[in-house]
Design a protein around this nucleic acid. Structure first.
Length: 896
RNA sequence: GGGCGAUUAGCUCAGUUGGUUUAGAGCAUCUGCCUUACAAGCAGAGGGUCGGGAGUUCGAGUCUCUCAUCGCCCACCA
């Protein structure tokens, strides 16, 4: 037999993936006779590397896509890649730095060319890594967010929003990254608690004797001070309003103004107002018509207005100023102070609130519909509690800063005349038309590019050919018509605002559609200490190493098995070994499946391969039982996946295959084959393989490789077809036979009872075969007689008597089940006192329970209020237990 | 400050609308097995006052309130 003892995943997984691609197994069909099903794949960053978040994410998506394909749906799953503005530009700039150059040395056009070169050479490694995982998307449809079609979509939507008044340019306080030297959106800033100092400074009045105490954490911004605010109701300062004080060191005179923003309870109740460096101060400045003085350069150093401190980094400047204030007795007090400061989510550098001209999207009008869509249940979130987070964001939405001071990205399609007139347009010609100027007037395009998410929010449309490859709008094309909205989006809750919410807005605004019907928010994967697995923490092994060790199937299975809906997953990691030991769950399971297949193949070769013929073969109890179990499992699987309960789906498969199919069905097949003719055995094995083929299909969506291999080995299929083209078995209610299940459970129960009896006896080896006798009613007796060889084998008995007269001459031990009394004839090798003790304990335990149930039943309120079936169940329990107690007492007495 | 989620065996987690004797599984532990698909396996065993308290109910791991601890998100008063 050409069948290795273990599945050679290292070789086979790669072979099968190549095979699938060569044979176009994942090609989009566009078959109008089938029901459409689509999943919107989140595009990874072009700079990205595979991490366990991707593994979970794409395993889930692939599970649903493969399953739907096997349910006869016309599936659409398109991969893509995000140009990742800042990340990519930073990568290339770092490379240039090694050559001793900056992007300014190259100029814009040449720099962008270099980025494209970089992209061609290093970009998109992650897409190759995803193939290792086995994802079955249509690679021919891969879209890059900088491709012509996607870029035209960006341009089109910008112009439309601009024309309709939803995009505007304004001078605002934005989040500035001094490292990347660009603006960031609010979502890209993370607040962290920091321990700093609170400095109380002296702002002297014009008399030169008295001073106002003003607290600040940023003394370096005094150069931008324009006023001091006090609360109008603060009695201490009421009469000072309108007076002037001088800024320490600087000496400039500023006015004391009244504003409710000043909290009398905090600090001294006086706030210095620096509109260019604080969002709240900016608003106060607007209210009071104050000037804004910017004293910091884009790189975070002080500018010429900071006098002696010019060119110092703002933090260095702070230290010096503090010292100088102290030396000049301008410092009242320095206290420890803990507060929150914004950091760049990407680079981790402190963010500078910075006054500058930027482009914004007006979000309120877009948010109204987007909120309603989710509240009305047009889009379902799994788990549902994320709706609250979504609502909160939508209700408190702020305008989105979309301009970035970068070169890599979609350049803002706005053209300016020299005198400052501007409009958004596809090109200069269109701009001239819109501005009503003639072609001699020179135009300049905006220098900035758009936030990467500005192309991402169009993804549901751009991936479906909203614009074609030549850049023409094709809103009525077949893909969009049939597959928008997508059926499912699988993503992490960390990008609910960045992406999910904005896609709802954009798709609704531009296409009057919802982008997707269901959103599955994945678990977060954490290490043994509960920390998120992340590159920056360096606490994550490379998934590729883990797959090398356990196989992609095992990793896929384990991660679904361990990742419940809405709960984070903790996995112990071994960084040194680049290992996640819990992956053994999947590996062991894969091995189990493999060996079940191996056994069936062995039997097939032993007896000869035939077609299963249900007219000649008569099914045994075990056959009917496994069929019932299979169809029940199919129902359970459907139910779980309809509700996105993937953990339960994988547990159902695991238990069915391991406990039912391997532990019981295969064992029965072995035993039954001893008494069969060869023809019967051929049919029996063909039947068993028939069941196993259905199992493989059910398992294929989560373990695509091993199931493909086994399906081919057992059925001798040629390599150009795939199990993924097969149809999943539908459950047939008539094959679910509860009587059969009940009967078979009795056999299982007999087995467990006698094994347990035996292994708890001193002096008897568990492998020793002994005679047993089963006392039971007539119906059960018939059942057991017709399955006596199975019972003999699974109970490990020498022989099995059914309702034979009790042989009192041989010492026996007894166990009482709900339907039978099992006597194990042990001879005199056992410790009788120990056995008596065991029986007495069992009697005591049961009597305790009988007492409880009797009490319950004598409670009138229980009998009157509880439903009838509950009461009768309790009554039956009571009588069953009493019978058991009697039987146990009887066997106890037999020792006396 | 506001919101969300968690707390069940040594560890990681199940536990469906309250009602099945003894609250389940995997891992780990202990005992015994190389039984001819699988030692990545098989058989058996031990281990839990379901975070604390109160309440509703005939009946609570499950519903309500409260407290505690942990995690996450949002806001950001110098």
């Amino acid at each position: 037999m050409n069948f290795d003892k273990n599945f050679d995943f290292a070789k086979k997984e790669e072979n099968w993936y190549n095979n699938w691609q060569e044979n176009g197994i994942f090609k989009t069909e566009m078959n109008p006779d089938k029901t459409p099903y689509s999943i919107l794949m989140p595009p990874p960053n072009v700079t990205g590397m595979l991490h366990f978040g991707h593994v979970l994410n794409h395993t889930l998506q692939d599970l649903f896509i493969r399953r739907m394909r096997m349910q006869g749906k016309d599936v659409v799953w398109f991969p893509g890649m995000d140009h990742a503005g800042i990340a990519t530009q930073t990568k290339v700039e770092q490379k240039l730095k090694e050559e001793g150059k900056t992007r300014y040395d190259l100029g814009r056009d040449e720099f962008i060319e270099r980025v494209w070169d970089w992209k061609d050479e290093y970009g998109g490694i992650i897409l190759e890594q995803l193939k290792r995982l086995g994802v079955s998307c249509d690679w021919d449809k891969t879209l890059f967010t900088m491709d012509e079609s996607a870029s035209k979509a960006v341009e089109h939507s910008f112009i439309k929003l601009y024309d309709e008044g939803l995009i505007y340019k304004g001078k605002r306080i934005i989040n500035w990254s001094p490292v990347s030297q660009t603006a960031l959106s609010d979502e890209e800033v993370e607040f962290k608690e920091v321990h700093e100092k609170l400095y109380t400074l002296r702002y002297y009045f014009e008399d030169g004797d008295n001073y106002l105490k003003v607290a600040t954490v940023r003394p370096e911004t005094i150069f931008g001070d324009i006023a001091v605010a006090v609360n109008p109701n603060d009695k201490r300062y009421k009469k000072l309003i309108g007076q002037k004080v001088s800024v320490p060191i600087v000496g400039r005179k500023i006015e004391i103004i009244a504003d409710n923003y000043a909290d009398p309870e905090f600090g001294t109740g006086c706030v210095k107002i620096t509109p260019a460096h604080d969002p709240n101060d900016f608003e106060i400045g607007q209210r009071h018509n104050l000037e804004s003085i910017n004293t910091i350069n884009p790189d975070g150093s002080m500018n010429e207005l900071a006098g002696d401190y010019k060119d110092l980094d703002r933090f260095e400047a702070r230290k010096r100023i503090v010292k100088d204030l102290e030396n000049n007795e301008l410092m009242e007090i320095v206290e420890d102070y803990t507060h929150n400061v914004g950091f760049s989510q990407r680079g981790g550098e402190p963010i500078e609130p910075y006054l500058s001209d930027q482009w914004f999207v007006k979000m309120k009008p877009l948010a109204e519909d987007a909120l309603k869509i989710v509240q009305d249940g047009e889009i379902n979130f799994y788990p549902n509690h994320w709706v609250k987070t979504y609502e909160h964001w939508m209700n408190n939405i702020r305008d989105w800063c979309i301009s970035r001071q970068l070169w890599w990205g979609h350049r803002i399609p706005v053209y300016y005349t020299e005198d400052g007139k501007h409009t958004a347009a596809k090109n200069e010609t269109e701009a001239r038309q819109k501005l009503g100027i003639d072609e001699n007037v020179s135009l300049k395009q905006d220098e900035d590019v758009l936030d990467t998410w500005f192309s991402s929010w169009l993804w549901p449309m751009t991936t479906m050919n909203w614009f074609d490859d030549e850049g023409n709008i094709t809103p009525d094309n077949e893909t969009l018509q049939r597959f928008l909205p997508s059926d499912l989006l699988v993503t992490g809750p960390d990008i609910i605002f960045f992406w999910v919410a904005r896609m709802v807005m954009a798709t609704n605004y531009f296409k009057q559609e919802i982008p997707f019907k269901n959103v599955y928010f994945t678990s977060l994967i954490r290490d043994g200490q509960g920390r998120k697995l992340s590159k920056s923490l360096g606490n994550s092994p490379d998934p590729l190493n883990v797959m090398d060790k356990y196989g992609a199937d095992a990793v896929r299975f384990t991660i679904l098995y361990l990742a419940p809906l809405g709960q984070d997953v903790r996995m112990e990691v071994d960084l040194e070994a680049q290992d996640i030991p819990s992956m053994e769950v999947g590996r062991n399971f894969a091995n189990k499946v493999w060996n079940a297949g191996r056994f069936l193949k062995m039997k097939q070769e032993e007896f000869g391969k035939v077609e299963y013929d249900n007219s000649t073969y008569s099914k045994t109890l075990a056959d009917k039982w496994i069929e019932s179990k299979l169809h029940k499992s199919i129902n359970a699987i459907n139910d779980h996946l309809d509700n996105f309960k993937v953990t339960e789906y994988s547990k159902t498969l695991y238990d069915f295959i391991w406990s039912d199919f391997c532990d019981w069905y295969i064992e029965c097949l072995k035993i039954e084959s001893y008494d069969n003719t060869e023809e019967e055995n051929q049919q029996k094995v063909a039947f068993g393989i028939g069941i196993f083929n259905e199992v493989l299909k059910l398992l294929h969506p989560v373990m695509p490789f091993i199931t493909e291999e086994l399906w081919h080995l057992l059925n001798n299929h040629s390599d150009d077809i795939s199990i993924s083209q097969e149809q999943l078995l539908q459950s047939t209610e008539s094959l679910i036979n509860e009587k059969v299940v009940e009967d078979f459970n009795k056999i299982i129960n007999l087995s467990e009872t006698s094994r347990s009896l035996k292994s708890n006896l001193n002096g008897i080896s568990p492998t020793q075969k002994l005679p047993i006798n089963i006392k039971t009613n007539e119906a059960n007796a018939t059942l057991f007689e017709s399955n006596v060889s199975i019972i003999t084998s699974v109970t490990g008995s020498l022989n099995v008597g059914i309702n034979e007269p009790f042989n009192e001459t041989i010492i026996s031990v007894t166990s009482i089940t709900n339907f039978a009394e099992v006597n194990l004839y042990v001879g005199d090798a056992i410790d009788i006192e120990q056995e008596k003790d065991r029986l007495q304990k069992e009697i005591d335990r049961l009597e305790g329970q009988v007492k409880g149930i009797s009490k319950k039943l004598s409670n009138e309120r229980f009998v009157d209020n509880a439903p009838e079936d509950v009461v009768s169940r309790e009554k039956k329990k009571l009588s069953d237990m009493s019978t058991k107690i009697d039987q146990l007492k009887e066997s106890l007495n037999s020792f006396k």
